[in-house]
């Protein structure tokens, strides 16, 4: 691991450790960036994946790695879900790989429209399908068992 990457990861880890309010970390993309340095003080990890096999596979790997890193609560979140068939396939895959699903975010054109308009999804349409599903996810996380 190169020094610059290591330093940034230490920085994320230290901030998470020493700041005492709720914190959400948008992690670097990619498996190779999940490290003890960053996640040491994280109590929940969400692995976001899309409904196709390679993405599911990566999501399951992220969950396994997170477990090895000692993170207490690990959830999969399926994003851009279009069909009931997708949902069924995702549930089966996650059951097989012991991934606990925290939510299904439906595919939502409003997110693209928001981006085109240069507006945040929440400001574009706070009752949009995807935003509503993320709101459900937020509630679930806030009330998850063992909340510190």
């Amino acid at each position: 691991m190169c020094g610059a990457h290591a330093a940034v990861r230490t920085l994320v880890g230290e901030m998470v450790a020493e700041y005492d309010r709720p914190t959400v970390v948008d992690m670097e993309a990619g498996l190779e960036h999940l490290s003890r340095g960053t996640t040491r003080h994280v109590d929940r990890l969400l692995a976001v994946f899309e409904p196709y096999f390679k993405s599911l596979e990566t999501g399951a790997r992220v969950c396994e790695l997170a477990k090895e890193l000692g993170i207490k609560q690990i959830f999969g979140v399926a994003n851009k879900v279009r069909h009931a068939n997708d949902e069924r396939a995702i549930r089966e895959f996650c059951a097989r790989r012991s991934v606990e699903l925290a939510g299904f975010i439906p595919y939502d054109d409003a997110l693209l429209e928001a981006e085109r308009a240069g507006v945040a999804p929440l400001d574009y349409d706070r009752h949009g399908l995807a935003v509503q599903a993320i709101a459900e996810l937020a509630k679930k996380l806030l009330h998850a068992n063992g909340a510190p």
Binding site: D26, M27, L46, V48, S55, A120, A135, L142, A147
Partner: peptide, 30 residues
């Protein structure tokens, strides 16, 4: 509560992380 959001580029992790942060702040006044 310290949440890490992981995923591949393009998976929508940033949209989820950001919206989640705002909703958590709004729901709890935190």
């Amino acid at each position: 509560m310290k949440i890490a959001v992981a995923g591949k580029g393009g998976s929508g992790k940033t949209t989820i992380a950001g919206t989640l942060a705002r909703l958590m702040a709004q729901q709890n006044g935190n």
